[in-house]
Write a protein that binds this DNA or RNA. Structure first.
Lengths: 204, 204
DNA sequence: GACAATACGGAACATCGTTCCGGAGCGCAA
DNA sequence: TTGCGCTCCGGAACGATGTTCCGTATTGTC
């Protein structure tokens, strides 16, 4: 790219005022997301951050950009929790525990589930982001469980990830846990040919 | 209430213009819902019906009122499909087939799934309506399957109903069917104590 | 210290749900 | 049939929201 002898990355050094606004926006958004959900009005975020709407849209053209930026660390933490679980538990148990972990994460972010499934262009890149981060994790867990012989049914990893976030509920009462257990149980025992194979076009 | 000797119901006879507007609204809403989803702008519906916004809101104060009115017949048909299935198939097969029927119904109504789970006050009465109509159906199907001994795990009927609508997806590719099969499979084989019991406060 | 590039704030616009009220349309009685 | 009173109607108006745009302020550099 560049042949300038600098130790900095390609990008120009960020102006301090830009950095300050960015931090203020991320902090404000995190607080507002926590209290009002990820679909909170833009004005509330900009007001708390003390910036104008233009500043927000320049840094985060789509709402999903702001959401991913705010949750990035927690998403990483969730993904990185898998190896430890795989080490300390039997494969199927590890899979179950991580799915519960993932479900708790989604459930804790008010409005995130709806955003993931809304189809709203403002949240367009959200599913892709979560897939990119979590798909390798589920795939690995599923393959381990299959290799151990504890899992007799096959499922596209994407389907499982999608199902878990589908089954997250705000007023839970154990509902999501029960459903995860039921799904894993279904996987454990095989589908005895009753399950139509995912023949073509897995999905993009 | 009234002691007038009329053979009519308590309510006054509807004026023909009122009936005409009502029909126009229902027809227009059905068309718009089909093409744009149940969350289509109010103005689009009133425009197509050739009425003002006030007319719509007088007849249907909440959006969910309009939705239930539009889908009423199809909801009834879906609920009433259960007995025939129960008669012609083994209990678990009947359960599976009806769940698929229900899933197809929800999937066919664009935006209905999101409306059911949105928590938006405009859709407030929607979940209750669906429960009232479908809960007896699932309960009956589940009890038959349990009585036949083919089902070894228990599940609150409400959970199952909720799960199916949760698992409906716009770009399906067989995903929902696979998940239904997996869930039923999990129910069929019992949960071997791995499933935490729904201890308290089932949910309203 | 001055200039150019960059970023900023918030007014402005479009869209949406919802309310409100002056006027039109209807049924009923004479 | 005609007139009256009541019901119902249409659409303007309001507030909230996402998004864009541009004159102004801030920053880095020479």
């Amino acid at each position: 790219m560049s042949d300038r002898p600098t130790e900095e990355p390609v990008a120009r050094r960020v102006r301090p005022d830009v950095q300050r606004n960015l931090d203020a926006l991320l902090t404000a958004a995190a607080e507002i997301f926590a209290s009002d959900g990820v679909d909170a009005p833009v004005r509330r975020i900009t007001a708390r951050a003390g910036v104008g709407a233009g500043t927000l849209y320049r840094h985060f053209p789509q709402r999903s950009d702001l959401i991913t930026a705010v949750f990035r660390h927690e998403v990483d933490a969730c993904a990185e929790a898998a190896p430890a679980l795989a080490e300390q538990h039997e494969p199927v148990e590890a899979l179950t525990l991580w799915l519960q972990r993932f479900a708790r994460f989604v459930a804790a972010k008010r409005g995130l589930k709806a955003a993931l499934h809304s189809g709203d262009p403002a949240y367009e890149s959200l599913p892709a982001y979560f897939q990119q981060r979590f798909l390798p994790v589920v795939t690995e867990l599923l393959e381990s469980a299959a290799a151990s012989g504890e899992l007799r049914a096959e499922i596209p990893p994407y389907d499982l990830l999608r199902a878990i976030s589908d089954l997250v509920s705000p007023d839970d009462q154990g509902y999501t846990q029960r459903m995860i257990a039921l799904l894993v149980n279904g996987l454990r025992h095989g589908t005895d040919g009753a399950l139509p194979p995912a023949t073509d076009g897995e999905r993009g």
